[in-house]
């Protein structure tokens, strides 16, 4: 008997129904967004006009499919580029941070740890505008004084990367540090004792141990970057990533089924990546330090 569960059948049933309802609530908008991607109609609305894949693959107006829509493809490409850059950077710095906070003792460590966490609780819009302001002030200052235009400090992909990196590094640090906590330092000492150089210890013992966390952190960073809107909105230039492109469409053109196709594509892609990141972290259990 599970003492934690409700004991009367009616209560049990009600609880189950509530949980079921909750998951229906979770799934409803995702299903709704995907649903119209397959409707052979020019508008994402009922009635159902028959199944089609045109909103993915058709190459002509008026039913220009996602994979032939230049602007959406361009956005996807930008998102991919930004996501890869942010994932690489934030995992690299996150790894350094994990070593710093898990392995080292130094003055003001407690204070700096709080500083490390703070980006997670700053609203994304504010992170966006503050980085925009600093970058612009710097660029203006340099231009006024030296007459040099630093275009990477103007809204565009480099700033978007900086903005997303600024809060994702906290997440990657926490993920990697959590794994590092489980690392037995004796493994490194054993490797040193067996004659390995410091670099070799890092490459053959420490990093392989951290690998599941590095992969998971990278995937998380990539995903969050791919779906990010708030921070990106403030920093975006002419090379807009997919979410911004899609938002512009919704706001300016109104919704068309190609946006449903894009949504479906995003749901499937991020669902798959999320699943991989969970599985990667799961698999480590049998291999725990002995």
């Amino acid at each position: 008997m599970n003492v934690a569960a409700p004991q009367t059948p009616a209560l049990k049933l009600a609880y189950r129904a509530y949980v079921l309802l909750f998951f229906v609530y979770l799934a409803a908008p995702l299903v709704a967004a995907s649903f119209f991607a397959f409707n052979d109609s020019l508008f994402p609305a009922l009635p159902w006009q028959g199944f089609t894949l045109d909103w993915f693959f058709s190459d002509s107006e008026p039913k220009l499919g996602l994979f032939h829509d230049r602007r959406l493809l361009r956005g996807m490409q930008n998102s991919l580029l930004i996501g890869l850059a942010v994932a690489t950077l934030s995992v690299t710095v996150g790894t350094c941070n994990a070593f710093l906070f898990e392995r080292r003792d130094f003055r003001f460590k407690g204070f700096l740890y709080i500083m490390m966490i703070v980006p997670l609780v700053i609203p994304g819009v504010i992170l966006g505008i503050s980085i925009l302001v600093l970058a612009s002030m710097t660029a203006n200052g340099v231009y006024d004084r030296f007459g040099v235009e630093l275009s990477f400090l103007r809204p565009g992909i480099p700033l978007v990367v900086a903005g997303q990196f600024s809060f994702l590094t906290t997440i990657t640090t926490l993920v990697i540090a959590a794994r590092m906590k489980k690392f037995d330092v004796a493994l490194e000492e054993a490797a040193l004792n067996l004659g390995a150089s410091r670099l070799r210890v890092l490459l053959t013992v420490t990093l392989p141990f951290l690998k599941p966390a590095l992969i998971a952190a990278g995937l998380v960073a990539f995903l969050v970057s791919f779906e990010n809107f708030n921070t990106t909105l403030m920093l975006v230039g002419s090379d807009a990533p997919l979410t911004i492109t899609m938002y512009d469409r919704i706001a300016k053109v109104g919704s068309t089924p190609v946006l449903n196709a894009t949504s479906f594509f995003l749901i499937i892609a991020s669902g798959t990546l999320a699943l991989i990141s969970v599985l990667v972290q799961r698999e480590r259990k049998p291999g725990e330090a002995g």
């Binding site: 037995d184 004796a186 493994l187 000492e189 054993a190 490797a191 004792n193 013992v205 392989p208 141990f209 690998k211 291999g287 725990e288 330090a289 002995g290």
Partner: peptide, 11 residues
């Protein structure tokens, strides 16, 4: 050295 918890490399 043989470590207290042996420190065999799990990977």
């Amino acid at each position: 050295m043989v470590f207290q918890h042996l420190a065999l490399f799990p990977m």
